[in-house]
Amino acid sequence: MTRSFEQAMAMFEPALPLAVAYSGGADSTALLVACARQWPGQVVAVHVHHGLQAAGDDFERHCRAFCDRLQVPLVVQKVDARHAPGQSPEAAARHARYQAIDALALHGRAAIQTIAIAQHADDQVETLLLALSRGAGLPGLSAMAAQWQRAGLTYCRPLLQVSSRAIRDWLQAQGVRFIDDPSNVDERFTRNRIRARLLPVLQACFPQFRDTFTRSSRHAAQAQAVLQEVAAEDLTRVGAPPDIKALQALSQPRLANVLRHWLLSVHLVTPTSAQLAALMVQIAACRTRGHQMHLKVGQGFCVRRGGVLDWYNPRPLSPSSTPSCP
């Protein structure tokens, strides 16, 4: 269920020292202030300058001045977050942010144990609705994880059960100033249209939608965890690269599950639904020595090599083609 800002922070117990991803906006400002008060001397702020807006330099100046007043060290990471053709602008910016934070934590501040990110309950609902609009499977419907490991660090989202309104109410009560990023109301971005048009309707029709949607995402995440365990067991049995005859012995749902797991865990590839369906048809048809396979999957190709299924990429993976962060 949704919590107050104070309740969420009381339950947050990160390993220290802690870095807070700080944009200067309301959510990250509230998280930074609360963490700095709770763990004085153990918190550093990380501001990523995306290089996408003319106001980016103003955001950086605001963050520097605010951190000086708060007596919290600030590290600014400048990145080029422009998106490649066919890539989502939001995904490109997110990928650049995580890379910058990883680099800081691993090389600039090696003692950092935890990275805190201020995404909240409304962000979680928007993520779920985006996943539904794209026909996502369980990984997408699981929305955002409250905690995960990346590059040897623990990432946390302590505010996932706190509404945006509750965060702003807390800031107002504290008399703390923040900046509003104008891109957050630009309805050219699907997420912003959801925020501006759908969330008010959901609030009117289903006042508890944040709780119920979040519960559905937790159920999806639990189911996905079970599928991951089954896929790992099946991959151990069929091998990596997988034996084609062993794959043919699996039911269709387990075959799809283990293929996704193999491609992602071994090759960092996520097949489309059409690619996966075509691959499964070819596996079923592969009954003779002369049967060949050469199917486009992700940025590379699935091929038959003797009795096993293999994947190769004729070109090295680019950073933008790696899996997105949770």
Rank of each mutant, 00 (worst) to 15 (best):
V266G: 00
P242A: 11
L255M: 13
A249H: 10
P314H: 13
T272A: 09
R315S: 15
I244L: 06
P241F: 01
H261L: 07
A246F: 07
V281Q: 14
A225G: 12
L227W: 14
A223S: 07
G290E: 15
N313V: 06
A278K: 06
A221F: 04
L235N: 09
L235C: 09
A225P: 04
T272I: 01
R237F: 12
R254Q: 14
A285C: 10
L259F: 10
E229F: 08
V303W: 04
Q222K: 06
R315W: 14
S273I: 05
A246K: 11
Q228Y: 09
V308T: 02
L255S: 07
H291E: 07
K296Y: 03
Q222Y: 06
G239K: 01
G306K: 05
R287L: 11
M280D: 01
H261K: 05
L247M: 02
Y312N: 05
L227T: 11
V266M: 05
A240W: 03
S217D: 13
E233D: 15
L295V: 04
G239L: 03
L279T: 00
K245N: 12
Q224M: 09
V269R: 08
L247Y: 03
Q252T: 12
Q292D: 15
H294E: 14
I244M: 03
I283D: 13
T236C: 07
L276H: 03
I244W: 00
I244E: 04
T270R: 12
Q252D: 13
V238D: 08
L264K: 11
D243S: 12
Y312E: 05
A285Y: 04
Q275C: 00
L250W: 07
M293A: 02
I283A: 08
Q248N: 02
L255D: 02
P316I: 14
L247E: 02
H291F: 13
D234P: 02
K296D: 07
A256E: 15
L279A: 04
C286T: 14
D310N: 08
C302F: 10
T288Y: 09
Q299N: 12
G306I: 00
T272M: 03
L259V: 11
Q292T: 12
W311H: 15
L264M: 15
Q248C: 06
L279D: 00
S273A: 12
A274L: 02
G300R: 11
V258C: 10
R254A: 14
Q224F: 10
Q252K: 01
L268F: 14
Q282I: 01
A231V: 15
